[in-house]
Amino acid sequence: MLGFLFIIFSAFTHSLWNILLKRAENKYAFNFYMHFANILFFTAIYPIVFPEYLYFEKGVVITAFIASIFFSTYHILVSSAYKYSDVSLVYPLTTASPFFIVIWAVIFLKEHLTVMGLSGIILTVLGTAVLNRTKGKWGEFGKGAAFALAAAFFYSFGALMDKKGVSGANFILYVYSMSLFMTMFIFVYSIRSGEITFNYVKKDKWWVIFAGLVVFGSFISYRYGLNMVNLSYASALRQVSSLFGAVMGIIFFKEKLTVYKMLGTLIIMAGIMFIKIGM
């Protein structure tokens, strides 16, 4: 049950940093400085909050390095999707990652899924697609859609490395190393694309700091939960972030409560119940 709650909390924080990223004018710059704020905060509290994890494990760092390549690519592709298209039209494509993850988890991690659990995964992904449907459209396949689908594919491999990383003794070192490598990779990309200038996010500096703290909460809580829950179930539960995103959009941005949002919410809730029963 505790792992279940950690995953749900991580879904909330995941949706929150996505909303902060979507509202930023320059999404590449905001993405980098958000991760930079996260790693600064993580570095400051590591010896204070996690002193028992202050030791080095070569295998854990290597796993974190590989995972960070996939997750950095995912973040860059998501930023590109937000840049080229209305994300509400293409976001459902990013929910394809649990399908990829289920395949990798069964093949490589030898996870066994119950009928109820698998049904819950399918319902959660379907509900997310319905939740993000706009009137008359399920998504237009253009540049934004292509970037979103590619993001889901790369995320699935990162998730596979995640499970390996958190299964080791020093999973805090894994999360820290992954966060550090991701910040470095996004920095290199931002330098090459010319999107690193702080002036791009200067007016949003307090939002950047807040987003960094949110990213930290998202990274840590998800990996804590992943220690206790099968990867297949964890990745599906993470899709509840769409539900939180829709609710926050209604509360903070005065978005309309549509039939699709209501129906998608009900389907997602049913999926969560199925996953919980099947765990």
Rank of each mutant, 00 (worst) to 15 (best):
S179T: 14
S179F: 09
S179I: 10
S179Q: 14
L180G: 06
M182C: 07
M182K: 08
M182P: 03
M182S: 13
M182I: 14
T183H: 03
T183V: 05
T183I: 02
M184Y: 10
M184W: 10
M184G: 09
F185S: 01
I186L: 13
F187R: 05
V188A: 15
V188T: 12
S190Y: 03
S190Q: 02
R192D: 06
R192W: 12
R192Y: 14
G194H: 11
G194N: 12
G194W: 10
E195A: 13
E195V: 02
I196D: 01
I196W: 02
T197A: 15
F198H: 03
N199D: 15
N199R: 14
V201L: 04
K202Y: 14
K202I: 10
K202Q: 12
K203H: 13
D204Y: 03
K205Y: 15
K205F: 14
K205Q: 12
W206M: 12
W206H: 12
W206L: 11
I209K: 11
F210H: 07
F210K: 10
F210D: 09
L213G: 15
V214A: 11
V215G: 00
V215T: 12
V215N: 06
V215K: 00
V215Y: 05
G217C: 09
G217S: 11
S218N: 15
S218K: 10
F219Q: 14
F219G: 04
I220Q: 05
I220K: 06
I220P: 01
S221A: 14
S221P: 00
R223N: 15
Y224K: 11
Y224P: 00
G225R: 07
L226A: 07
L226Q: 09
N227D: 08
N227M: 13
N227R: 15
N227P: 03
N227T: 12
N227F: 06
M228P: 00
M228V: 00
V229I: 04
N230K: 14
L231C: 08
S232V: 07
A234E: 04
S235D: 11
A236E: 00
A236Q: 01
A236V: 03
L237D: 00
L237A: 07
L237K: 06
Q239T: 09
Q239R: 11
S241K: 04
S242L: 14
L243W: 07
L243P: 08
F244H: 09
G245V: 05
A246N: 00
A246G: 08
A246Y: 01
A246I: 01
A246L: 03
V247W: 05
V247R: 06
G249Y: 01
G249D: 02
I251S: 02
F252E: 06
F252P: 04
F253K: 06
F253S: 10
F253Y: 12
K254S: 14
K254T: 05
K254H: 13
K254R: 14
E255A: 09
K256N: 13
K256V: 08
L257H: 05
L257T: 08
T258I: 04
T258V: 09
T258F: 02
Y260S: 14
K261W: 04
K261V: 00
M262Y: 07
G264A: 02
